[in-house]
Design a protein around this nucleic acid. Structure first.
Lengths: 158, 158
DNA sequence: CTGTCTGCAAAACTTTTGCAAGAGA
DNA sequence: TCTCTTGCAAAAGTTTTGCAGACAG
């Protein structure tokens, strides 16, 4: 039902591999997440997927996103305040986030997940990881600041 | 009006130094943030401050917290979903957050804010910072994982 | 055929806002 | 006094839930 059947099958495989039922709604939601290079909100996903499945509801998009996040296929990036919607992205090879405080735009920066590097950041962190039994499964690094040139767009893509 | 007048005066000085009016509400809110060692939500602050100022309203707590954050005296840690309330903390010497995925507990880890160290984390980050005009004003590092011993409490303090 | 998922509408909840009354400087 | 702040109540906005019908496996 999606325009790109070959991508669709990769998505179906991903869903099946984590034990999810392959509904067209989930395929479409995950498909949009894969194809979107920005960080769409639930409503962004809803608007996009509605073009493929006009009958889909926003609640279903939320449920699908939650399913994907729980299954480890997607990640939720929370908004800054409670009224700012959360944003979602496919969980591929991780990356850091560069958040522009002027425009709200969020950029990805490819990340090498290296616990050793993180441990070296600070002796205190090293102590937690080595001596206090904290097992590190991942980390989120968000860099806050702003672009000095004016070429940062007002709104992030997608 | 607060039980500890000496702490109160330090708080008043902090408020004045950023050009805020010293209302008893703001003094009490900031005072609770200073004294709380966890990461209270707006409602936590409200409940605590109500003991000192019974007439205070939740909206005022929100407004005070926003004022403090804008003035740079406090920091907001957003919740994981939109319905999970944000948490607040005094902005002292920064720290990282160690979030236990089993219990939801969040620990602080003292941080040395050193852009050089961050730049060294990854060549890609370095490029952004040095060549693409992104001015770094801060960062948030959240370490995800879990404590292997069972001594991690079920709920974070306060 | 059976258990899971969807769609709808309403609820839940945090956070914000408007405005009159009150307090700080 | 004059402006900024509070308190109240209602609004705004995102996310969740309950339930009947639909669909995947």
């Amino acid at each position: 039902m999606l325009p790109q059947p070959h991508e669709t099958s990769a998505i179906r495989i991903a869903l099946e591999s984590v034990g999810c039922r392959c509904t067209q709604q989930r395929v479409a939601v995950l498909g949009h997440l894969v194809q979107a290079d920005g960080h769409p909100t639930a409503d962004d996903v809803f608007q996009a997927v509605k073009l493929l499945i006009p009958s889909i509801s926003l609640a279903t998009v939320y449920k699908s996103l939650e399913t994907l996040v729980t299954a480890g296929l997607a990640t939720r990036l929370q908004g800054d305040t409670g009224l700012v919607p959360a944003r979602y992205e496919v969980r591929g090879h991780g990356h850091h986030h560069l958040r522009c405080l002027k425009t709200g735009r969020v950029d990805d920066v490819p990340m090498n997940f290296d616990p050793e590097l993180i441990a070296k950041l600070d002796p205190e962190i090293e102590s937690r990881l080595r001596h206090q039994g904290f097992k590190l499964t991942g980390y989120r690094l968000e860099l806050l600041g702003y672009y000095e040139q004016a070429d940062s767009r007002e709104v992030e893509p997608s």
